[in-house]
């Protein structure tokens, strides 16, 4: 076994998921300890610029599979290719971001090569050559420590924004190794017919700033001031389940146990009481600001800053103030 660390780089339409660079940053640290190299894996079509960026973020080698059959993410061809490359190159560690496709690809390939997998981890280290991870469980109320046992490649997926992103170094470059797909198009039963990107909006899990509204916004129009503040801050819009269930905003925006788990630098909760299931999705935010007219709302026990008052007055005042100070 080599001491090499594989990182599967997630990309879509030639644009990498920034969480993949966080994984490359961690891979550098682990490869240093193992005396190996960081090998980035880029699958897709027309992905040269992603391969170049991988060097700049810290990869020593890039294995690139550029083929129409890989143009869009699909489970079978991606899993089969990753498993094949792991068998050929026998890395010590295989990492990826714990996005929907990162979770699928690593779990599938780990099954193919019978490797241990630690998912959605927020800390990762090596002890005697074995991965040891920490991850929040039970709605983020407790941290669980998990370890890999036995020999062979060790897999882990990393929670978005739990590991620092490295600074790109534009002078770095390296060798690109070309790889062929593991499956031909006629061996792939799944076809992607249509992709509708949520245009112009910032993905909640990538966002560094989130402004979220709950039942307190009172209706679909109540998300107006929430959205305005998010726009001023270049952030994303979140919501509680109560607001989603009421049909005021689509489910993609739901934060919490049955929605998305987010870790922004700043989370502004307006008209959200702070139920335990909502906390499960946002308690790891670096700074939480709560705006609520009820001074006893549980959200104030989690927040760093609390503003008691009417969100319809406070949100526009905040937007105004930020606009002044940030311009």
């Amino acid at each position: 076994m080599s001491g090499n660390v594989f990182v599967w780089i997630e990309q879509s339409g030639g644009k990498a998921n920034s969480a993949s660079w966080e994984a490359v940053g961690l891979a550098r640290r682990l490869a240093g300890e193992l005396g190996g190299q960081v090998i980035a894996l880029v699958f897709g079509q027309g992905v040269d610029s992603v391969a170049q960026a991988a060097f700049q973020y810290g990869a020593d080698e890039v294995i690139k599979a550029d083929d129409p059959s890989l143009a869009h993410y699909r489970f079978a061809p991606y899993v089969s290719l990753l498993a094949k490359l792991v068998q050929e190159r026998n890395p010590a560690v295989v990492l990826a971001a714990a996005s929907t496709s990162g979770r699928e690809v690593l779990a599938g390939a780990a099954a193919d090569v019978n490797a241990g997998l630690l998912t959605d981890v927020t800390e990762l280290s090596l002890e005697g050559g074995k991965l040891r991870a920490v991850r929040p469980i039970l709605g983020g109320k407790v941290l669980r420590e998990e370890a890999i046992v036995g020999e062979g490649p060790q897999f882990a997926t990393l929670r978005n924004r739990a590991f620092p992103a490295p600074q790109p170094d534009t002078s770095r470059s390296g060798t690109v190794t070309e790889a062929a797909p593991a499956l031909s198009e006629d061996q792939i039963a799944t076809k992607v017919e249509r992709v509708e990107e949520a245009a112009g909006t910032i993905s909640l899990t990538d966002a560094t700033i989130i402004v979220a509204g709950g039942r307190g916004v009172g209706g679909p129009d109540g998300f107006g001031p929430v959205r305005d503040l998010a726009d001023v801050l270049g952030g994303a819009v979140g919501a509680s389940r109560a607001a989603v269930d009421a049909g005021w905003i689509p489910y993609e925006h739901q934060v919490g146990q049955t929605g998305k788990v987010v870790s922004p630098d700043l989370y502004i909760a307006a008209g959200i009481s702070g139920a335990i299931q909502h906390q499960a999705g946002m308690r790891t935010a670096r700074v939480i600001v709560a705006i609520n007219k009820d001074a006893d709302a549980p959200i104030f026990r989690l927040a760093q800053y609390g503003l008691v008052g009417d969100l319809f007055q406070i949100l526009p005042a905040l937007a105004e103030e930020f606009r002044k100070r940030l311009s």
């Binding site: 929907t100 076809k191 992607v192 017919e193 992709v195 509708e196 949520a198 899990t205 990538d206």
Partner: peptide, 8 residues
Amino acid sequence: TERGTETV
């Protein structure tokens, strides 16, 4: 997915 809706 994080990026939107896919029909497959």
